[in-house]
Design a protein around this nucleic acid. Structure first.
Lengths: 224, 224
DNA sequence: ACAGATTCCGTACACCGTACGAGCCCCGCT
DNA sequence: AGCGGGGCTCGTACGGTGTACGGAATCTGT
């Protein structure tokens, strides 16, 4: 009884902002953002709910920190290739990260302050574009467009109930087509049927738009 | 005391799903989606909280219905012009609608079933593209890309603390530039300064990407 | 006039974020 | 050695949430 044992629970070395935020991300991955409550998170860390507030001012700050963890996971554009390959790699990485943390997309809308990892990322992307010969204005346009594409795609993809060609085919035949009578929705009906027949793979969709956007930006290098 | 007066409060003719959903949209516009609670909404309608559950199975269904109200506000692509003008009009309309109902963007991620107005809208867009000569596959690509652009832009714009050129200049000078020391963020610092000097207007950004995407899609008409 | 359906809502329960303040432990000072 | 203070932990409590349940009031058809 004389032994000093401050932490007796599952947690190993005591809390820290880092540990709190990382566990919050893990919990959100597992249960969705709705399943993330301060009490639940504290339980996961083997602590009392109010203990968390020593490391985070409030839940908003926790969510901000979680978003920045997500940004830190996105690969920075490599410096040793042409700008298109670099932007392509970072877009693909961002897509993977957002697929791993789907809750992040719904949080982006509400968080307005960038966070350090977010800023470092923007700096690297802007550097890549400027070095490739884009003007300040064109680099801004390109930055916007690429971000819009990546986040917009993730947003759209998150609200779809299929990810693979097989899942799409199943959903289309069992759910969509019955809901799309040809009299009311001739074109959607035609599309759904034709896409299933052609073995349409929604996972490929990302690259179509990405490559189209990259190609369309190329001629703008060097222009004002 | 013998007079029959069932509804004595501000509400005029009694409840209905329509009235509940419309008032919910109004409340969300006014107070944000966090300010929308069943009790609050009921109060706004001059009713008890539990009365709402006669018209809506649960809050999720209410949110679904609200999203569909938003979709119904988006202009359908006009049929009497070329496809680019039609798509441009509907994109601009969607942007306006989403700016009017910013809460809608954060809801889209979580709602997975389309809703009638959403379906009607997709049918009209697909019809426009197919009639313009896009194949089923290309129309699907174009549909995705345009939606990704519109929703992605709205998502991005919602998380920025400025809308106009003046607000951007103020924020950049008072907030961004002090946070972007030139040693750590040379390119972002340069960009912020140059954009302010050039009178950069973020409201114009929408059209750059939109027109670029439309132009890049044009040559794909008629291809497989 | 009465029966049944429709509409409304008061109460209650489990959960949420978090303000407040009491306890605990460790450290440095006298 | 004793003590005071500061960092950390957390129990309790308050006002909010979504909604299950059951009762009451009204409307409708006979």
């Amino acid at each position: 009884m004389a032994v000093s044992r401050r932490r007796q629970v599952a947690s190993d070395i005591g809390l820290s902002k880092q540990r709190v935020v990382v566990e919050a991300v893990r919990l959100a991955d597992r249960e969705g953002v709705d399943g993330l409550s301060m009490r639940r998170l504290a339980g996961e860390l083997g602590a009392g709910a109010m203990s968390l507030y020593h490391y985070v001012a409030n839940k908003e700050e926790l969510l901000d920190a979680m978003i920045d963890v997500v940004f830190a996971e996105i690969e920075l554009p490599p410096e040793d290739t042409d700008w298109q390959s670099a932007m392509r790699r970072r877009a693909v990485s961002a897509r993977q990260v957002l697929a791993r943390h789907p809750w992040a997309i719904s949080l982006m809308e509400s968080r307005t302050s960038p966070g350090p990892a977010h800023l470092r990322h923007r700096e690297a992307v802007t550097a890549c574009l400027r070095r490739a010969g884009f003007s300040v204005l064109m680099a801004t346009h390109a930055n916007w467009l690429l971000d819009v594409y990546v986040y917009g795609f993730a947003l759209q993809a998150a609200s779809l109930p299929f990810d693979t060609a097989g899942e799409f085919a199943d959903m289309a035949e069992d759910v969509f087509l019955p809901q799309l009578p040809p009299e009311e929705f001739p074109y959607l009906n035609e599309s759904a049927a034709a896409l299933v027949a052609a073995g349409y793979d929604p996972a490929e969709e990302f690259f179509f738009g990405l490559d189209l956007v990259l190609a369309a930006l190329e001629p703008l290098r060097g222009s004002a």
